[in-house]
Computed example of a mutant assay.
Amino acid sequence: MLKIILRILISFSFTFALFNSVNAAEVTQLDEGVVAVDSRSTALRSQGIKQAFEDVILKNSGTQSALSNEKIKQQLNSASSLMTQYGYFEQDSQLFLKVNFDHKRIINLLREAGLPVWGKQRPLTLVWLVNEHNGERDILNDASTVEDRNVFNRESAARGVPLLFPLMDLDDAMKVGVNDIRGQFTENVANASLRYQANYFVMATIAPQGSGYQYQMALYPREKDAQALQMTSLVNHSGESASADEAVAAMVGAISQYYVEQYAVADSGERNTTKLTFSEVTDIRQLVAVERYLAQLSAIKHASIGKIQGETVEFNVNLFGDEADLHRLMALDPRIGILNPITESSLDYSSFEPIEASQKETQIYYWKGQ
C-alpha cells in the first residue's frame, strides 16, 4: 500500500493525502492556481492571475458552469483583490506563475453566488483505462510514463479529483485483462479493485478513430448494492474528440460532475438544523479536534456544543443544505466512525427542539482521528 501512496503524487498545484487503511483522500492547496507563462511581464502576470482564479473556482466548486456565473465573472476582473501571494518557478524549461488566494473569501464568494462548495474530503477513484497506440492495446498503470498519464494528472489537478491507477502487477494481471475492461466485465474489475481501497472505480477506453479519438467510460461504486443482482454504473459517458487530451478532460469532467452532485453543498437558503452526537470523547484534545472538523465541513454553517454527558457530546448544527448532505460527507471521512447506522427517516430536517425517540433515531459517531 505504501508503494501506491508514494507514487500518487500530482505535479504542480495539486496534492492530496491518502489514509492507507480506508478509502478516502484529502485534497490540499485548493487556494492555489499554477499557470504556464512565457515571461514575467506585467500583462502576462495579470492574465495569469485571472486564469489561476478560474482554476481555483473550478477546484472549489467542482462544476464548469461556475465560471459562467455572473458574480464570478464580475470578480474575475478584480481577481487580484482576493490574491494573497504570487511567485514564479521553472520546471522542465517552462516558466510557471503560482498564485495563492484567500480561501475563506473564495468560499464566501461561491456561497454568495449560490454555487456549490466542495470540501477537502473527496472520493478516491481508481482508473482502469485501456489505451490504444499503433494498433496495440494495454492498460494504463501506476508506473506508466506515457503522455496520457500526465494528461490525467493535469486534469486531476485542475478538477480537484483524486485519481490512482492499478499497479498491473501479477495480482492485477491474473484478474483483469484488456478484454475485461473493453467488454465491461464489471465483476472481474470490481474484485481486483478492492485491494486499492478506492471509493469508486472507472472502466474506460480511448482509441484512435479517423483523425480523432473515440472514448467511453463508466463509473462504478466500490461495492454493489446489497439488493442488486449485479453492479450498475453511476455514470456512462462516451464521445469523440479531436485529441486524447480532450478525451481525458471529458471523462474526468464527467466524474467530477457526479461527485459535485453527491458531495458539494450549495446554500439552500433555508434554516435547516440538526443534532450530531459523538461518543467516546475521552479528553479535551478529542473534543477540540471534533469541533475543528465540524467547522471545516462544507455542509455546516455553524456548530456548537449543546450538551456533554460523560463521554458523549451533542452538537447543535446549522446546515447549508440538508441532513442527507451532511451524513454523506461524514461517511466519506476516514477520521469518522459510526456506532449505529442511520435510518431513512432520520434524513428529514430536524430542529433544536426535543424529538421523541420513536420519531427519529439518532446517528452516533465517534472520532478516530488521523
Rank of each mutant, 00 (worst) to 15 (best):
E246H: 14
M203H: 02
D172Q: 03
E223Q: 12
A198L: 10
P166E: 00
Q214F: 08
A228E: 10
M174E: 13
G210R: 01
Q209T: 13
E240D: 02
V235A: 13
Q230F: 06
G239C: 13
L234T: 08
L194I: 02
L167A: 11
E246L: 14
A218L: 13
Y215P: 04
Q209E: 12
L234M: 12
Q214I: 14
L167S: 10
F165D: 07
L164R: 00
S238H: 09
A173I: 02
G177L: 11
L194D: 12
E246Y: 08
R195C: 03
S238K: 05
N191C: 01
D225P: 00
F201P: 03
L194C: 04
I206R: 02
N199Q: 08
M168S: 03
L170W: 11
M217I: 01
L170I: 03
A247R: 01
L234C: 09
A192Y: 00
M168N: 14
P221F: 03
E246K: 13
L163R: 04
P221S: 10
Q216E: 09
Q230G: 14
L234A: 08
N236Y: 14
E246Q: 14
N188T: 15
N199E: 03
F201Q: 04
L163T: 03
M231D: 15
D171S: 10
Q216G: 07
Q214P: 01
A247K: 02
A247W: 05
E240F: 09
P221Q: 06
D225C: 10
G183W: 00
S211C: 07
Y215K: 08
M217H: 06
I206D: 00
R195V: 01
L229W: 01
A218M: 12
S238I: 01
Q227M: 03
E246W: 07
A218Y: 11
Y196L: 01
V178G: 13
L234K: 13
M203N: 07
A192F: 01
P208L: 00
Q216L: 00
K175R: 15
V178I: 14
F165Y: 09
E187S: 13
V178C: 15
S211V: 12
E187R: 14
K224S: 09
M168W: 05
P166G: 04
Q227Y: 01
F165H: 10
Q227P: 04
G212A: 07
S211A: 13
A226F: 12
N179H: 11
N199Y: 01
M217A: 04
R195M: 03
L163N: 04
Y215C: 00
D245H: 10
S233N: 11
H237G: 08
T186K: 04
Q197I: 00
K175P: 06
H237R: 06
G210T: 05
G177A: 10
L234E: 14
I181V: 05
T232V: 13
N179Y: 11
E187A: 09
I181A: 06
A207I: 12
V178M: 15
P166V: 01
Q214K: 10
I181L: 13
N179S: 15
A228H: 11
S211M: 12
M217F: 06
M217K: 08
N199S: 13
D180A: 03
A228W: 01
V176E: 13
A207R: 13
S241G: 11
N191F: 05
L164A: 03
A247V: 02
S233M: 11
G212Q: 10
D169T: 01
